[in-house]
Nucleic acid binder design. Structure first.
Lengths: 233, 233
DNA sequence: ACACTCAAAATTGTATACAAGATAGCATGC
DNA sequence: GCATGCTATCTTGTATACAATTTTGAGTGT
């Protein structure tokens, strides 16, 4: 069941698990046991353990000694923290990217935008196509960070995005506000292509703040609804 | 030889190794083998492997499949990247800290400053005492990040500081410029205690830039000297 | 003296066996 | 009916055996 037989089993187990968590196939709060995963992937527990270690370091699962691992659940405050950091890092990365982007880089960004528009324009599109659009939108930020040239910055931003992504998949997917992000993405790419670092940075920071407000509002509403249900029962 | 028998061997191996790397006992570029560490710590290879996985995720060691692990060597560009990120994160953390610090927090910061001054004032001090002052100076930043209340921010900053620390120990130790940092630290703590978030942030960012310039100048000089030696031979 | 080949040693990757601790369920006593 | 304690089971923690791969070094041929 391992997607691709890479160099080591540990790596492919890690990739498989990470993909399953990030896409929400294994939802937050799920208990994951070494034996189950090992059996499912037809490997021994050893590579699974090592994959778990790395995932724990990534913050995707949390484990307490001798009590097993659980897919990390984000609460509202963790989201607030994550977006606060993203505003700093993403803003800076976008500034840098605008300053150093080559023509090839710019073409790459425009291609992602085009793909987003194409997916958005499909009438009566499937869930899968919605997923793809969201994925591409997140990827835009990853690519911008990569273009910035600061490898460490790129790595840290990817880490944060991974951690938040499964919530985007499962929650944000149904929000119409997403089309706002589409416009903002286009503006950011414009600024980068124009080489206007300052404007690109400002737009990126505003974009992250906007996303944060949307996500937090949704989570708050959900939390309120759940406590309402709890009180009613 | 494991310093403290904690809950799990993996954790104590991780702590021991991390301490040895961060303090420079195992210098950057050293090859570390599982068997050696396992023998040295009187444990089997299994917990050592898991510790290595975590250390690799921390960026303290780098390993290629079937080729073993090496304590990560920082080149100049990696330092530049790290300090660029620190300027963002440290600046923001300091702003936050100034906004939310309680009296207890402020006392904690002042205590660290006092300790630094005490250690700095010792005449003919030992290397150990110099170490302790540097350690305290770095700890100040960790505590500020903790006071900020953003747990993720604190974690990320600690990660960066850990990665750079062994260089501070082995290189920066001999720089007189360190006493500049002492004054700047005092100013930052002053601003935090005064609740002046904007000033605290500005000072912190300038401080990180200053540290960066010092470190980069030193590393550049060292690199130049080494290429001079190479040419001469 | 140099290069190439092959084998042996060292090192990591994986599997499995066993130990220790935690959880859950059942039985027992009140 | 409820609480408490025990046991059985499940899960992780550790050690060790074995497989696979890389590196190193000796030896041979030119």
């Amino acid at each position: 069941m391992a997607k691709e037989t890479k160099n080591t089993l540990r790596d492919s187990v890690y990739s498989s698990l990470k993909a399953m968590i990030v896409t929400g196939q294994i939802p937050p709060g799920s208990r994951v046991t070494e034996s189950d995963i090992a059996a499912k992937l037809n490997v021994s527990r050893t590579p699974v353990r090592e994959a778990f270690n790395r995932l724990e370091r990534d913050g995707l699962v949390t484990g307490r000694p001798r009590q097993g691992y659980v897919v990390t659940e984000f609460d509202i405050s963790m989201f607030r923290e994550a977006f606060e950091i993203r505003e700093l890092l993403d803003g800076h990365a976008t500034e840098l990217a605008a300053a150093v982007a080559t023509e090839q880089d710019k073409a790459r960004l425009r291609a992602i935008l085009t793909e987003c528009e194409r997916l958005a324009a499909i009438p009566d599109r499937t869930t899968r196509e919605k997923f793809q659009e969201l994925e591409a939108g997140i990827d835009l930020h990853r690519v911008i960070a990569q273009i910035s040239g600061n490898v460490m910055l790129h790595g840290m931003l990817c880490g944060i995005l991974d951690k938040c992504q499964h919530y985007v998949w499962t929650e944000l997917l149904w929000l119409d506000e997403w089309k706002i992000a589409r416009d903002e993405h286009a503006e950011i790419v414009d600024a980068i292509c124009a080489g206007d670092a300052s404007r690109a940075g400002t737009l990126a920071r505003a974009h992250v703040r906007g996303s944060r407000d949307n996500v937090l509002r949704l989570l708050q509403a959900k939390s309120d609804y759940q406590s309402f249900l709890a009180k009613a029962s």
